[in-house]
């Protein structure tokens, strides 16, 4: 008799790897082919997880059409099933998967579109953002500012791409003008994605501002983040950019580096 742990392992193999012979031996037919019984579970797992991915990546789905998306999703689900029961978290590595998925090779913009959509999906999950304690910040001596590390609005993320994924994304939003054929040579973008009151905003940043904000978002000290921005554009208005960050209420907290 198979121990429960082993039965569940071979059942999983029967669902995801089509490796069903072992588990079929343990399933009673009761008037129906055990294969058909197992298939009911497999069908539910694959279709509901495909639907989860469709709802997280609606533009990718529209770009490749539903049938192709289901084909890609099927491969993704079998290789990378969810790690937990909160399915809003499922799909974080879908863009990486698309990068290595041979049928997608002719569409090199797809992984970056998936990256952008994941950033949008995540931004929509957060409801409450605690603002920065301005009094505490304003009390910091100017000389100490370069050594600060910041926590940012948790809905923020940064996506850069050589492809015009922001234009493609906008063209697929509700109420967008029907797009003429999008010019993939239109150039790339540095994008800031953020949750806002009535949804999610996708904003184009100039490359130096992107370098600054992205560096701060990954916890780099202000001095170092400023260095990265100035390396992109030596004439970058750093002070103005910091004022803008404060005005945009980008920061939620800060610490002094020791």
């Amino acid at each position: 008799m198979l121990a429960l742990h082993d039965l569940q392992r071979v059942f999983k193999g029967g669902l995801l790897a089509d490796d069903e012979e072992t588990v079929l031996a343990h399933i009673a037919g009761d008037g129906l082919d055990p294969r058909a019984r197992l298939a009911i579970y497999r069908h539910h797992v694959l279709t509901t997880l495909t639907a989860t991915l469709e709802s997280a990546f609606p533009v990718v789905c529209q770009l490749v059409d539903k049938r192709f998306f289901a084909y890609a999703a099927d491969a993704f689900i079998r290789d990378h099933p969810p790690a937990g029961a909160c399915l809003v978290e499922y799909g974080a590595i879908f863009s990486e998967f698309l990068e290595g998925f041979p049928p997608c090779q002719g569409h090199p913009y797809l992984p970056d579109m998936a990256r952008l959509e994941w950033a949008v999906h995540q931004a929509a999950q957060v409801a409450e953002v605690r603002p920065l304690d301005r009094a505490r910040f304003d009390a910091i001596p100017l000389d100490d500012l370069p050594a600060l590390r910041f926590s940012m609005d948790p809905t923020l993320s940064y996506v850069s791409s050589p492809w015009p994924v922001d234009k493609i994304w906008r063209a697929h939003q509700d109420g967008a003008e029907p797009a003429e054929l999008l010019d993939l040579s239109a150039g790339g973008a540095c994008l800031e994605v953020r949750g806002v009151a009535d949804g999610v905003s996708v904003r184009v940043l100039d490359p130096a501002a992107y370098a600054l904000r992205h560096a701060l978002a990954v916890g780099v000290m202000l001095e170092e983040a400023a260095g990265e921005a100035l390396a992109v554009d030596p004439s970058f208005d750093l002070i103005g950019a910091i004022h803008q960050l404060l005005q945009d209420q980008t920061f939620t907290d800060f610490t002094r580096a020791t």
């Binding site: 121990a3 997880l49 099933p81 969810p82 399915l87």
Partner: peptide, 25 residues
């Protein structure tokens, strides 16, 4: 029911064998 095996969450309420081992688990 069960849903997880080997770190994978299979997004369905999967069937159990009704044995003493399962009862204990």
């Amino acid at each position: 029911s069960w849903s997880t095996s080997g770190g994978a969450y299979l997004n369905h309420l999967l069937p159990l064998p009704y044995t003493d081992e399962t009862l204990a688990v």
